[in-house]
Design a protein around this nucleic acid. Structure first.
Length: 372
DNA sequence: AATACCGGCGAGT
DNA sequence: TCATACTCGCCGGTATT
């Protein structure tokens, strides 16, 4: 006698143009106007990039990642356009409330960013896609009534298909791709539409004559493995078939980083002062999450926007602001010595990354004992 | 031979 | 020139055990 195992049902939820929508909710008078949420780098008055824009702004060509100055040029005749500095703390508070709602509606839950999450609802729906769709409508309605916010819901047989469903129905959509329709949905797509295939991978595939997902699904496995490696090659083929076995699970954060734009480009290590707040922030974050790091790294971004990194693994995990800073300064000193020999170059942005995070169980025990 | 570490690259929000 | 701040994952090369 075997128990009935319903086919997996996964819901992906994506909060529409999240940062900009948070601003619309906070101040409804800006709804209908172009709303542009900006990260001001502080280098000059207006330098920086667009983080998110609402759909009014997007329809005019103001997309994520473009320079703020360009966005202003595009919208300069539009006197109603609203440019706001990113207020990540506020967005996180809104996000936390909504994620709480979503978590309560799922058996397994995985938040993948501040505005996206997956819900495994297999047993709740008993594998029934009509039940899943009703649940999707309920989720949309609840977020709308409690937070006055729209979202897009995608439903599929795994995370990939749920995500593909979401991406093809934004914004304010509800899209179900039932298992029978997976091939029909996927085959005609250009490979660049697949989640995880960006411009570089798309171009590589084009050189071997693979343009559509159907062609990728039929592509020669050896060729793919030769080009993309023994993991990515087979994964690409699976993706093209709409297959994805990855479970919906909450993952612990594996790295923290902080990065800033320098007031002026550096040709030598003359910005040690600027690193102190970064180190402090990361140290605080470690302490508050009861973690210590075993690996400390630096990030340097050149004026050509090339990313360079150096890192060091230490023997005893640390939370210490001073220790992190000391290693970071060593790494930057070495880095500039090396690069000096290599030729002239300029560093635009610098940062610190900490990885190999390990729980500080000793602190946990102490905290418990305090209560005993 | 297996594992760890390192730096680069790519993708996504 | 105009180009943020994050996080995750894989690749290949090299070092360590």
């Amino acid at each position: 006698l075997t128990t009935f195992e319903p086919p997996r049902v996964v819901i992906a939820v994506d909060l529409d143009y999240f940062y900009a929508q948070c601003e619309e909710v906070r101040d409804p008078s800006i709804k209908g106007k172009p709303v542009v949420v900006c990260v001001f780098s502080g280098r000059t008055e207006e330098s920086g990039a667009v983080s998110t824009a609402n759909y009014v702004a997007r329809s005019l060509g103001v997309n994520s990642g473009i320079p703020i100055t360009l966005a202003k040029r595009i919208l300069h005749e539009n006197s109603s356009a609203v440019f706001l500095p990113m207020d990540i703390e506020y967005y996180r508070i809104v996000s936390d409330r909504i994620m709480g709602i979503l978590r309560s509606k799922s058996e397994k839950f995985e938040q993948t960013s501040v505005d996206e999450a997956y819900l495994d609802v297999t047993s709740k729906t008993q594998g029934n896609y009509d039940a899943a769709e009703m649940l999707g409508k309920e989720i949309k309605q609840e977020i709308l009534s409690l937070e006055k916010m729209t979202c897009t819901v995608g439903i599929g047989k795994n995370k990939l298909m749920a995500k593909m469903a979401v991406d093809s129905k934004k914004p304010d959509g509800l899209n179900v791709i039932v298992p029978d329709q997976v091939q029909r949905f996927m085959n005609p797509l250009q490979v660049g539409k697949l989640f995880g295939i960006g411009p570089k991978t798309e171009e590589k595939l084009r050189t071997i004559g693979v343009n559509t997902v159907a062609e990728l699904a039929q592509a020669d496995p050896n060729t793919l493995t030769n080009i993309f490696g023994k993991h990515l090659g087979p994964t690409l083929k699976e993706m093209a078939s709409g297959e994805d076995n990855s479970p919906v699970v909450e993952r612990p954060i594996e790295q923290f980083s902080r990065i800033i734009t320098l007031k002026k480009n550096a040709e030598a290590f003359d910005f040690a002062e600027d690193l102190q707040p970064l180190s402090s922030d990361l140290s605080r974050k470690l302490v508050s999450s009861r973690l210590a790091c075993k690996s400390i790294g630096i990030i340097a971004i050149t004026n050509q926007l090339k990313i360079k990194t150096r890192s060091k693994t230490i023997t005893t995990p640390t939370q210490s602001r001073e220790e992190i800073l000391k290693i970071v300064e060593e790494l930057f000193s070495h880095f500039f010595e090396e690069e000096k020999l290599a030729g002239s170059f300029k560093i635009r942005r610098v940062g610190i990354r900490i990885t190999d995070l390990t729980p500080t169980t000793i602190q946990k025990v102490r905290t418990l004992e305090d209560y005993v």
